[in-house]
Design a protein around this nucleic acid. Structure first.
Lengths: 346, 346
DNA sequence: ATGAAAGCGCTAACAG
DNA sequence: CTGTTAGCGCTTTCAT
């Protein structure tokens, strides 16, 4: 092996290995792919050449000729939200277990970057896309559909792909009903900008249904960007604190996710509203933080790992043609985890 | 356009576009890449054909012929740790801003899966690898080096690639000194299994240095897997609680990261040790959770976004040959954020 | 200003 | 059992 010292050593190719081992490239290919029908002697020679040269198959070339990749695109709402971070981790693990590599893109809840992300994924010819959040943007949909890329919606929803999710509406009911049963009469729904997709709508619907059943109402929707001290209440800007102090105050809030719930709890602490005495809070997701003794957030728990596992199972079934036909919809159980952030109103 | 209804519509190629527009594929390529020297008329025709067909260049093919990818491998310790999640998010953002796509792999702090992850990244011919955690495993190193793939270590370290990091040793000193100055004499160092790499060692070194300067000692190392109630103390298994209650108790702990610190605080709450009266705790990272009023963790803050930004700048400089020569080392400031988890001992 | 042709590294028939 | 050959979709000279 003669090489100039400063030579930029390029990756050895299958041809290098072939000539090094004195065989043809197909034989090398057969060895690499572990096909039968290669004599033990040559197999050994090829193996030796492979590690001597440090050969590593070029996945790009392989996938180009095979016309399919083993890459899964994963669209994540916001990695800084522990729920998504945990989901991302689970999804990666289950994907790897089935031989897929995950390519993430973070959308920050913005349908603009969601579209750009999906675009990139498609250019990379991902075998499928796992949405952990979906804005509902129709352009994203068109781009995805049009290219016949299997899509699965995990813990979020759309009607044009397989869905693996908790029953968000039921979750909304559970959380709200818990509050109703504790004796609350004025219960608001809280969302933060990052999540206002299909899931959010379903949770909101569940909240309203629960209210209606209890003959309470009208529903009250708070849109808040923490840590601001004002928020959009049923569309009009108001100081957040007023809601909980004036006459006929809101005594309980059902938040569309734990991050929002914890932010609200933080706000309450700051303005000396006692949780749960002055204000009961229910979240959604059951992120690890919610279980800390000091946080003690009552919340609707999603079985994260199960969702991820089913999601990957579903999309790999689609990709590998074990699953055909119209979109499927699998709902897994939610359950309410009662902690210290909820109690009877004063 | 005649197509059977059930036809599996395959991705249109550059050739489809070419024939649709009545030009050669080189011309299409020139238009796609925005090269000059294409008449306005043809450019328009090609553009029209492109969106009519929904053509999307195949990145794999492009990168195969160009012999370089625009993909960055990102090795993450544990996405469930908010520090890594935030870093991953920042890294992805800055990478995208420079035209790179991020491909993550989660190692769970295990050098086995780290190696497997790097292997996958190399097979995908990533242009460079960003380590957000590195076990120090020499096989990983060899694989990476041998393939001349630029590597940058962000908030972790190794001597064979560019490093962008906080001064971990200084951080260890700062945290420990804060405790010393509060009057503590028995201060332990706490680590959890996920992070026992170069950074951990440097923080441990800083801790010992601070102890030595204060003529305190000997250093005491706790290795704990939350939420167990026992831990390895200087290598021997002991009930964790004993450390803080017996004679000559440990009154303060410097944890190698916030997740460990918060887990310890949780443990203390559970066994009725008051933080900070009975036990002061300092963390490392300043994850968002640490700043919640209810957590109030004193910690050594890392400027996450700056680290990510510099890291991406560095590796893109390497990849694009603006930076040559031996590994560089850039340290950014750490600072101590004092909160409620530290106070004078009883 | 446009086209023709030669690969990039690999797989997958098909021959020998 | 092993080798030959024809592409996968694209970029990139080099002609025209």
């Amino acid at each position: 092996m003669i090489e100039s010292a400063t030579a930029e050593r390029r990756h050895p190719t299958i041809l290098d290995v072939a000539s090094h081992a004195g065989v043809s490239k197909s034989t090398v290919s057969n060895v690499v792919r572990g096909l039968p029908g290669v004599s033990d002697a040559t197999r050994r020679r090829v193996r030796a050449a492979i590690d001597e040269l440090g050969y590593r198959p070029n996945v790009l070339a392989r996938q180009l000729v095979q016309q399919r990749t083993s890459m899964l695109g994963v669209v994540v709402g916001d990695l800084a939200n522990p729920f998504f971070a945990e989901m991302a981790k689970s999804v990666e693990r289950h994907a790897a277990a089935r031989g897929y590599t995950a390519m993430f893109c973070n959308t920050e809840g913005d349908s603009q970057s969601e579209l750009a992300g999906v675009e990139t994924l498609l250019q990379h010819r991902v075998a499928g896309i796992v949405f952990l959040a979906f804005s509902g943007d129709s352009r994203t949909m068109r781009e995805t559909m049009q290219h016949q890329v299997p899509a699965v919606f995990v813990s979020c929803g759309a009607d044009w792909g397989d869905v693996v999710s908790v029953d968000d509406e039921l979750g909304g009911r559970l959380g709200t009903t818990h509050l109703v049963e504790a004796g609350h009469r004025r219960i608001a729904y809280l969302s933060i900008p990052e999540l206002e997709d299909e899931s959010d709508r379903a949770r909101w619907a569940g909240y309203r249904a629960a209210l209606k059943e209890a003959h309470l109402g009208p529903p009250l929707r708070i849109s808040w960007s923490p840590p601001a001290d004002h928020a959009l209440v049923d569309g009009v800007e108001r100081p957040l604190l007023d809601l909980f102090t004036g006459a006929g105050p809101v005594t309980a809030v059902f938040a569309s996710n734990d991050v929002a719930a914890i932010a609200l709890q933080e706000f309450a602490d700051r303005v000396n509203l006692h949780v749960p005495k002055d204000l009961s809070i229910v979240g959604f997701d059951d992120v690890p933080m919610a279980g800390l003794a000091r946080i003690g957030l009552t919340t609707v728990a999603q079985p994260r790992d199960e969702l991820a596992k089913l999601g990957i199972a579903t999309i790999s079934d689609r990709i590998e043609r074990r699953l055909k036909g119209p979109p499927t919809r699998k709902l897994v159980d939610v359950r309410l985890v009662a902690r210290r952030s909820t109690a009877a109103p004063r």
